[in-house]
Design a protein around this nucleic acid. Sequence first.
DNA 1: GTATTGACTTGGACTTCGTCCATCGTAGGA
DNA 2: TCCTACGATGGACGAAGTCCAAGTCAATAC
Lengths: 124, 124
Amino acid sequence: MTAQRRVVAEVLGGEHVHFTADEVLERATARLPEISRATVYNTLGELVSLGEVIEVATDGRAKRYDPNAHHPHQHLICSGCGAIRDVHPGGDPLAELPASERFGFTVSGVEVTYRGLCPDCARA
Amino acid sequence: MTAQRRVVAEVLGGEHVHFTADEVLERATARLPEISRATVYNTLGELVSLGEVIEVATDGRAKRYDPNAHHPHQHLICSGCGAIRDVHPGGDPLAELPASERFGFTVSGVEVTYRGLCPDCARA
DNA sequence: GTATTGACTTGGACTTCGTCCATCGTAGGA
DNA sequence: TCCTACGATGGACGAAGTCCAAGTCAATAC
């Protein structure tokens, strides 16, 4: 655990943040000015493979990193401004995929992404 | 309808292809050697906004284009090789999101992406 | 105490994917 | 025939992310 890794982990400390790698870098730089971009990417990658952080792909734009990895949830993304909210739909989407629709795949997970407009963007 | 657009539409003619923009360009070039990358992107963008083709974001890599836009379906993606299959789960994921979890958003759609390993990658 | 080792970090080059823009060509109308 | 406008072209550009050689640092070995 180096200072750099601690800073990256701290930046992702909140439960409800969804930062891009650049935003993480920006905030990490504020605390540790000499941290490099490669280190931020390396550390984020490790946190993801440790299962501490979830990568959220938001359609062409930069990936976002979600530290709320221990509570299963899905995402609701605003098509206007890109804002993300964690949501908790009912039902188990994995159970909805019958074996006949699995084509021999070993299915390990499922992501559900709701899209729409947030109240601010809907008004505009 | 120009020759270039016809070629792009033809390349996406099959019901079960999921090409990247580069693969579309490659196949279009085979039929019309002087077609340019910008034209392929323009045409794909128009097909998407016409609702004839769906954009599939596959996790950091290049977007894929799915001509099977008129039959609602979801995707099963191999984490190993990136292969995509169309799948048809039961249930309606939109209905699973109660109003209390919508945070005032105008929810317009939902994507469900199953992830796993295809038989070939699982064997390796 | 010094040398060695290995893990981590750095910064810059590089790649990939995609967009933008000035210019060119061509088909159809005046 | 000439004009006009739309679409195509290709090259420059930009964002996001990866790679790599070199540097730093701490722990272990001698």
